[in-house]
Amino acid sequence: MAPVIHLVRHAQGYHNLSFENQWMPDPDLTEFGKEQCEELRKNFPYHDKITHLVASPIRRTIFTCQLSFAAAVTAGKKIVALQDAQEVSLYPSDVGSDAELLKKEFGDLVDFRLLTDDWNDKSPDSKYYPDPLKLEARARSARQWLRDLVKGAGDDTHVALVTHGGILHFLTEDCELLAGTGWDNTEYRSYEFADETGQDPNASLKELPESLRRRQGSEIPLTDTEKREMRAAYESVMNEGIKHCLDTISQQQLETSQ
């Protein structure tokens, strides 16, 4: 069997409880979020196959990875922090903590060697500003990195990547307009690379049949036209969110200066 990539959305964080909580910087998991991790730990069927742990450097994804894949962590596998897997929006809840603070908090649990000092810079000129073309580019970069990670690692390789609802749609190249994301907290879906030769410059993923059956049952997959239409709608909503966030930040700065 070809290497498998298990994509996982983080557990519930305090920012998920209300819109106002989106302004919380890099929030913790809620107690219910920790229970969700426990359920994922109990129900995930591939613990004995996991060879690599990867997470967005935002705290809730690291905690979700640590708690949900505790067996692999206990066995000595470090969580690799992949900054291209961070969330898309400009809200403080989706802007990660400074690298030095993360290193102090998580220590040897996480491999931060790929994390740059400016990884949480989401200014308009940065790689991580939530422009659709930039999001596509870094999602592609993340997929290419994953492909390089599993290259030569053997067909029994299983990677768990814990990340976020927004960027997951770019990683999987679909756009489901469902409450901001079509992924539930701690939902996992399993993929392999669409091109087995490793030559695809896009490094596209395709969901495994058993993963599709588990979450869709007999549901008919979307056509390419339907996917394009949903993508346009998703981008419209995302752009509105960026505008609202920037307007709110400007208003807060104005009030502070008065």
Rank of each mutant, 00 (worst) to 15 (best):
D200H: 11
Q12S: 02
S211W: 04
S93W: 04
R140I: 13
G13H: 05
I58G: 03
I242E: 10
P92F: 04
A2W: 07
A233V: 09
A137F: 07
R213C: 12
H158F: 09
C245Y: 11
T256E: 12
W23L: 02
K42F: 00
D148E: 15
L168S: 14
A81I: 10
G165E: 13
F106P: 00
D26G: 04
R214Q: 11
V80Q: 04
A70W: 08
H244A: 15
R138F: 09
F44S: 00
P27S: 05
S190Y: 02
D200Y: 14
Q216G: 02
N43T: 15
H10T: 08
V159K: 15
R140N: 09
F32G: 05
E210S: 01
V159Y: 14
R228K: 12
Y91A: 06
V95Q: 02
T116D: 07
L114P: 00
D28Q: 07
E207V: 00
R59Q: 03
E235N: 06
V237A: 13
W119F: 15
H164E: 08
G198Q: 05
S123K: 04
E187Y: 00
C175Y: 14
I5G: 02
H52L: 02
D84G: 01
Q216W: 08
D184I: 05
E105D: 09
G96P: 12
Q22Y: 14
D111C: 02
L135S: 05
H47Y: 13
R147Q: 15
R189P: 00
P3M: 13
H169W: 15
H244P: 01
A75N: 07
I50Y: 08
D247V: 10
S56H: 08
L17I: 09
Q252R: 14
K206M: 10
Q36S: 08
E176D: 07
Q83N: 04
F69L: 13
D121R: 13
Y91G: 01
T256K: 13
T248N: 08
N120G: 01
S141A: 14
W183H: 01
H15I: 15
C37Q: 08
M1H: 07
F170Q: 01
W119I: 12
M24H: 03
P221D: 12
T64I: 09
E176S: 03
F170G: 00
D108P: 04
R147S: 09
H52S: 03
D247S: 10
P201T: 05
L115V: 12
L101E: 11
C65P: 00
W145R: 14
T74H: 08
I50K: 07
L178H: 03
F63D: 11
T163R: 03
T163E: 03
R138D: 09
T186C: 15
F63T: 09
G198I: 07
G154A: 12
Q66V: 03
G76D: 11
E87S: 09
Y234V: 06
F19E: 15
D195N: 03
Q12E: 14
I5L: 11
G96L: 15
K206R: 13
E31R: 09
L161G: 01
Q36H: 04
